[in-house]
């Protein structure tokens, strides 16, 4: 250990401080959009961290992770519609159902690996997507508005924007801590060992299937929490929450931030969503500088840049942003 203050740790600390100060900034400037955006960033960061637990450390590339977002959200929405608003019932049930679903999907899909695993997780998520589309009582493909956020007696008032923001932030930090503890435990060592060489791990006596299944379920539960938060954030659920491109977005966040570290996906989530907001303006600005006048069309087609950018990141910056920062010290 050459000391705790590495560029990476300093960067992580800075990100956390910035996230913690967002409500202060928003209150001072009256910028409520900023609050909404960052609440969303934090919630999706929880999902991305949970995905990274199985994908980055366990080598299980799940292309259906958005299903848990949907399941968590739908449990909240369905209970709210049926008149059960207390979070003490809603939230544990959201986690439980997500976990059970992960158990089923994991038990089937972990029999396979590689491309099969990617496609099977995708297919199961697609199945849940169609089920949600068929739930006419709960909005079908139009989705369902949630009239009341989860209630926690007199303890927490989630309808308060700032309270909700800090609840999400605390849950994100708790998630990062839990995942960090898992990775650095004996259990985590087995998971990472199975990623490098599954057969060797089994040969030395670890039933890797069971370890991976437990890890898969933990990730599902955490992502279900993220879904419960997302439903509370938007006061709305719809099948679009678990559209397969959302699963793709989660993978992008994890890879963009850096799969090698627990905190990487948080950086990826911030980077991707902030980029989505600012890239149109940046392109608009660039076109303004180049052509001397505002080119509206250039702004609209910002995804033309995002797509190839993903390809370039895959080809040339596999460590993600975290990798760039970690190598800055050596560089």
């Amino acid at each position: 250990m050459s000391g705790m203050i590495t560029p990476r740790n300093a960067f992580v600390a800075a990100v956390i401080v910035v996230l913690a100060l967002i409500p202060v900034y928003a209150a001072m400037t009256g910028n409520t959009f900023m609050m909404t955006l960052f609440t969303r960033i934090i919630i999706l960061a929880i999902a991305a961290v949970s995905l990274n637990l199985i994908m980055g450390f366990g080598g299980m590339v799940s292309f259906g992770h958005a299903a848990y977002l949907g399941i968590g959200g739908y449990v909240i929405g369905i209970l709210a519609k049926e008149g059960i608003n207390t979070g003490f019932v809603q939230w544990p049930l959201a986690l439980l159902v997500s976990g059970l679903f992960a158990l089923g999907v994991g038990a089937l899909s972990l029999r396979t690996r590689g491309v099969y695993f990617i496609m099977i997780t995708l297919a199961f998520a697609q199945m849940v997507y169609y089920i949600a589309n068929g739930l006419d009582r709960y909005g079908g493909d139009d989705g369902l508005t949630i009239h009341k956020r989860s209630e926690f007696g007199g303890l927490l008032n989630l309808s308060n924007r700032t309270v909700f923001y800090y609840v999400c932030l605390v849950l994100l930090l708790a998630t990062v801590y839990v995942v960090w503890r898992i990775i650095n435990s004996r259990f985590g060592a087995v998971i990472q060992g199975a990623r490098s060489n599954d057969r060797r791990m089994r040969a030395i006596g670890f039933p890797t299937f069971r370890y991976k299944l437990v890890c898969f379920v933990i990730a599902g539960v955490i992502c279900g929490l993220s879904g419960a938060l997302l439903a509370n954030h938007t006061n709305f659920i719809s099948p679009a929450m678990m559209h397969w491109t959302r699963s793709g977005d989660l993978i992008v966040m994890a890879v963009l931030g850096g799969m090698g570290s627990v905190f990487g996906p948080v950086i990826g989530s911030v980077a991707l969503l902030v980029l989505e907001e600012t890239l149109p303006h940046l392109i608009g600005f660039a076109s303004h500088v180049i052509t001397g006048k505002e080119v509206v069309a250039a702004k609209e087609y910002w995804q033309l840049i995002l797509g190839p950018m993903l390809l370039l990141i895959v080809l040339f910056a596999r460590g993600g942003i975290d990798g760039l920062i970690a190598s800055a010290r050596r560089g």
Binding site: G114, G248, V252, V255, G307, P308, L311
Partner: peptide, 17 residues
């Protein structure tokens, strides 16, 4: 395969646009 998924996901976004 993760690289394939990500890279071609980027291409898919690009083509839609």
């Amino acid at each position: 395969h993760l690289d394939h998924v990500l890279g071609t996901f980027g291409l898919l976004i690009f083509f839609n646009e």
